[in-house]
Design a protein around this nucleic acid. Sequence first.
DNA 1: GTCCGTGCAAAGGATTTGCATAATC
DNA 2: GATTATGCAAATCCTTTGCACGGAC
Lengths: 139, 139
Amino acid sequence: MDAQDLKSAGLKVTLPRLKILEILETSKNHHMSAENIYRALIMQNEEVGMATIYRVLTQFEESGIVNKLNFDNGQSIFEVSSVEHHDHLVCVKCGKIDEFSDEVIEKHQHNVAKKYGYQLTDHYLYLYGICKLCQEQKA
Amino acid sequence: MDAQDLKSAGLKVTLPRLKILEILETSKNHHMSAENIYRALIMQNEEVGMATIYRVLTQFEESGIVNKLNFDNGQSIFEVSSVEHHDHLVCVKCGKIDEFSDEVIEKHQHNVAKKYGYQLTDHYLYLYGICKLCQEQKA
DNA sequence: GTCCGTGCAAAGGATTTGCATAATC
DNA sequence: GATTATGCAAATCCTTTGCACGGAC
C-alpha cells in the first residue's frame, strides 16, 4: 500500500493518509482502533484530529484498502486488507488478535447462504477465547 | 422463560423484566434492539425508561437469558437464548435476520481454536447478504 | 486556481451512571 | 424493613458533521 494505491482509489495523496496507512502496516498486530491510530500519530508529533482518522478510515474502507471489524466491546478495529480472506480469534483477556482461515468453514458458509436463498455479500466470524499465554498466567 | 427463570438468576421479579422477556419472546423475529423493546413497551402504555431496558438486558445477558449480537451498524440486537447454539444470516437490504446452525462449521471452529491454543469462550458468525425477497425486488 | 482534505469544535446516537423514589421479598 | 429496581436526567463513549483554512493537483 502506497501513494499509488491512494491515487487509484481516487484519493489525493496527503500526509495524514500516508501516515495512517503506514501505521496500520507497521503496527505490531495490524489491528488498530481509530484511537490507537490517533495516539500513534500524536506520539510522532503529527498534528491530526480524530475526525480525520475516522474520515480517512471510512474512505479506506469504501475503497477496500482496509477492513473494519466490529468486536464485542463496541469499538471498531481496522486492518489493512490482505489478498486472502481471513477470520479472527480474539483473546478476551489480553485483547490479542490472531488471524486464521479455514476453507471448510468458508465453503459451508456459502452452502448455508445458498440454502437460505441469500446472495452473500460479506461474512464475519469471530472466535473469542483465552489465548495460551493468558491461560498459563491464570495459574 | 418466566418469573421462575428470573428468580433462579437471582433477579427480582418485576414488571419491566417480565415485560421485556415477553416482548423478546413474542416479537416477530425474536431479534430486538433496546430501542425496539422500548418502543414496544411505550405502545403498551408501560412507563419505562431506556436505562431500565439496558440494565435489564445487561443482567439478562450476564445470566445467560439472552444473547447480545453486535451487527455491522453498531446497534446491539438481543435474542432470547435458545438451547441450541445458532448463528445469523442478516439481509443487508431489509434487515431480516435468519438463524442457522451448521455442525461442520462448529466443529472446525473448535479445531481452529485448539490449533492456536485458545480456550474458546464464545463465537459469533455473521453472514451478510441479500435475501431472496430483496433480490427479486431489485428487478 | 479549483477542488478536495484537514483541524477544530460542536453535534449525534447508543449506552451508562447518579440519585431519589418505589417496588419486591 | 432491607435491599434491589426503577425512572429521570445528566454523563459518557465512540463516531460524525459543519465550517473556515490549507494543501494537492
